[in-house]
Amino acid sequence: MSEEKTPRVEIQPELCKGCELCISQCPKKVLELGKDLNHMGYNFATYKGDGCIGCGVCFYACPEPGTIRVYKKIRGDK
């Protein structure tokens, strides 16, 4: 369960158009553009896997409605 409580970001690779706005606006610089292409032919953004603070900046930076989901830090949890 402790893993569930860690802030993190999920990016759906097949729903990403590779605009890089999430990457450029992430305050912790924990997102990067992958080398692989998705079915639309875009390089898609991925989470480096560590360092996300669950701030949600990337969600609002992303122009797609449901590509990014951010798991925030649960209150009271360290």
Binding site: Q12, L15, K17, G18, C19, E20, L21, Y42, Y60, A61, C62, P63, E64, P65, G66, T67
Partner: peptide
């Protein structure tokens, strides 16, 4: 069926 029709980086989606 999960993405909008806008170009990459378009402000409309935001």
């Amino acid at each position: 069926k999960q993405i909008v029709h806008y170009c990459p980086g378009c402000g409309h989606g935001r």
